[in-house]
């Protein structure tokens, strides 16, 4: 028996979509583990994660893609912020950004199919970076959706291996998340 008729809404019952989170972290051993462990413990699923050192050698930049609704992702960002080694977190999903990913795709090739593969690659502004008798490696840099499309096209030739870096993202314009880190 409840007192009222209207049910209280729960946090995070909104629409799920893919979010891009940028985190500036201390470049120290174990920080990646802290981030990964937190996401696992709090039940957030990381779709992709790219990490590298920034212009300053003492900080690294992580780009995480997480699927969830606004509240879920906001909670992930807040939890990330609680890590002492996390200096800045930003959800850039709705910002104007350049989002790129690199993929290497090793495609089965024969003498006959090779020119066709090369032309598919060129049409998608991809490069053939290794040319063998039985396989070619295609390298592509671009938005994840473009890479998905190329992968689909190459699938008919047979993909032997596929590696993707995960998205890296940068906001357009003069703003800099790294400069926002308070020191």
């Amino acid at each position: 028996m409840s007192v009222g008729t209207s049910a209280r809404s729960l946090p995070g019952s909104g629409e799920e979509r893919r979010h891009l989170i940028v985190a500036i972290v201390n470049n120290k051993p174990g920080v990646l583990n802290r981030v990964a462990s937190l996401m696992r413990a709090r039940n957030f699923n990381i779709e992709s994660l790219a990490v590298s050192v920034t212009e300053r050698s003492d900080t690294s930049r992580m780009t995480l893609t997480i699927v969830g609704d606004e509240v879920h992702v906001e909670q992930a960002a807040k939890q990330l912020y609680k890590l002492i080694d996390v200096l800045k977190v930003q959800d850039v999903t709705d910002d104007s950004t350049v989002e790129h990913e690199l993929a290497l795709i090793k495609v089965r090739a024969t003498k006959r199919s090779r020119p066709e593969i090369v032309s598919v690659a060129e049409m998608h502004r991809a490069k053939v970076v290794d040319l063998g008798d039985e396989a070619v490696i295609v390298e592509v840099v671009g938005e994840p959706a473009d890479i998905d499309a190329l992968v689909e096209l190459l699938r008919e030739f047979g993909i032997k291996e596929l590696v993707r870096t995960g998205s890296v993202v940068m906001s357009r314009g003069s703003g800099s998340i790294e400069e926002q880190v308070k020191r």
Binding site: A7, R8, P11
Partner: peptide, 25 residues
């Protein structure tokens, strides 16, 4: 939570931003 304090507006003061909006709106 669905049947919690159904008529109330909730004000939430906490030093941990992650607690706000975690369990109730």
């Amino acid at each position: 939570v669905r049947t919690y304090a159904p008529k109330a507006k909730i004000a939430h003061i906490d030093i941990d931003p992650a607690e706000i909006g975690k369990n109730v709106v």
